[in-house]
């Protein structure tokens, strides 16, 4: 094993400093008593208090949360199906187009996706609002979900599925009782990823939305254009806090789950001997 050199340690330290210092400063200044960003006026939580009275922000937060929950659930179901199709269905007519449709949204500039979605909704004569944002978010998130789940499906021992089928389980039953529990950690992270993508999105939502469905990023964006205020720092800090807790809990519980699975497999192995 090579020694962990000073050069490597320094580059990691500098890299993480670059990644985290801006976020840290944002969080610290959300507790600033002073309205001016550069003047430190002592610790205060008054900006959090004023958020609670800001009806516009609270409404937008509620819309965003609902959109994120519905669209990420839809995206996870569609993305898991898409991953199963990509990994398990072998070659079929139109497979190249299908994988193109999965990978293109990952890199497609958001302005193009947003505009094209909007024009589709207009062509279909759909009322724009909550549901059009949900559909738009579900569509691009399902591709991220598919990539996450397919990675897990690839390094999964297919013989377990085959054994279930040999013992007479139907494909649907095999999927629900064998495959799904094994890929569950990746399905959960796919849901979380879709959830944060939806929570986060400004551009696509701005195109797809209609009257009455202003999301939090849209609200934040319109305020940011007017300048930096401690109130935006406060709402940002709340969002960062929620996401961090969510990700940490999810990664801890999937780690626990995979350790348990390993232990059980070992026990089965030991029993077999």
């Amino acid at each position: 094993m090579r020694r962990f050199s000073w050069f490597n340690a320094t580059s990691i330290a500098l890299g993480f400093a670059f990644l985290y210092i801006p976020i840290l400063l944002l969080v610290i200044y959300s507790f600033n008593e002073s309205k001016l960003v550069t003047v430190w006026g002592g610790w205060s939580t008054k900006w959090y208090g004023s958020l609670l009275e800001n009806e516009g922000i609270l409404n937008a937060a509620w819309v965003t949360l609902r959109v994120a929950i519905v669209s990420s659930t839809l995206a996870t179901i569609l993305g898991t199906l898409a991953a199963v199709v990509l990994v398990r269905m072998g070659r079929f007519r139109g497979r190249t187009l299908f994988s193109g449709l999965i990978f293109a949204p990952l890199v497609m500039p958001e302005v193009i996706t947003g505009l094209s979605m909007l024009l589709l909704f207009v062509a279909l004569n759909m009322d724009r609002g909550f549901w059009t944002v949900v559909i738009a978010h579900a569509t691009f998130s399902m591709c991220f979900a598919a990539v996450v789940v397919q990675a897990r499906l690839y390094d999964f021992d297919k013989s377990v599925e085959e054994a279930a089928m040999d013992l007479g389980a139907t494909p649907v039953k095999t999927f629900m009782e064998v495959t799904l529990p094994i890929i569950a950690p990746s399905v959960i992270s796919a849901w979380l990823l879709s959830f944060t993508l939806s929570l986060d999105d400004l551009v696509i939502a701005s195109f797809a939305t209609g009257p009455g469905a202003t999301t939090l990023p849209m609200k934040i964006y319109s305020q940011v254009r007017l300048g930096v205020t401690p109130e935006i720092n406060a709402i940002s800090t709340i969002m960062i806090g929620l996401v961090t807790i969510g990700v940490l809990v999810a990664s801890y519980s999937t780690k626990r789950a995979s350790q348990r699975q390993e232990r059980e497999l070992k026990a089965v192995d030991a029993g077999a001997k």
Binding site: L19, I23, T196, L199, P217, S236, M239, I240, V243
Partner: peptide
């Protein structure tokens, strides 16, 4: 940081 909002990170 990738999980936290893009908009917020630019705002920072």
């Amino acid at each position: 940081p990738f999980w936290t909002s893009f908009l917020i990170r630019v705002y920072a």
